[in-house]
């Protein structure tokens, strides 16, 4: 390989392991290529260490697919982002932006750079896009 490729390979090698070890997100999610989903909430669980949203997405063929979304700790969502047990209720329509899985499984990372809005009103429920990769907490 030429020098430029070698250079790049070493940059990637040095960074990739370092940054994301703590949660293991790098192993599962592609944070460089976020996706947007039109979702209907099935269930929300504000728990620890990772909260969970279960939701349905209609795929291109019209089939309903069950997805899950992973967030940060329930304590932090409640404390820092004012979520309550009623923030998302079954049947709520939301638009979600987050990091998809690397392997294509119906799961999305919402703990870091992500955004959730109510589809009908545009009301923002969560916006941590500013955090991105460099600014995320832990």
């Amino acid at each position: 390989m030429n020098v430029r490729q070698y250079f790049l390979a070493m940059v990637l090698a040095a960074f990739s392991v370092v940054v994301f070890a703590h949660h293991g997100y790098a192993d599962r999610y592609d944070e460089e290529n976020p996706i947007t989903l039109d979702a209907v909430v099935v269930e929300m669980q504000l728990i620890n260490p990772h909260s969970l949203i279960v939701f349905n997405v209609r795929d291109e063929g019209g089939k309903v697919v069950r997805w899950s979304g992973h967030l940060g700790s329930g304590t932090n969502l409640r404390r820092n982002e004012s979520w309550t047990k009623d923030t998302l209720k079954p049947g709520d329509r939301i638009t979600i932006l987050g990091a998809p899985t690397i392997n294509g499984a119906p799961d999305i990372l919402l703990a870091r750079a992500s955004r959730i809005t109510r589809t009908d009103t545009g009301e923002e429920i969560k916006n941590s896009l500013a955090r991105g990769i460099g600014g995320r907490r832990f």
Partner: peptide, 25 residues
């Protein structure tokens, strides 16, 4: 302005199978 909240780590701990790399960064 805070109170302690309940945090039960074992409730939904999903990370370990996905954490890669050495501890020492």
């Amino acid at each position: 302005e805070w109170e302690l909240m309940e945090f039960v780590c074992n409730e939904n701990n999903q990370d370990v199978p996905h954490i890669v790399g050495p501890a020492s960064m």
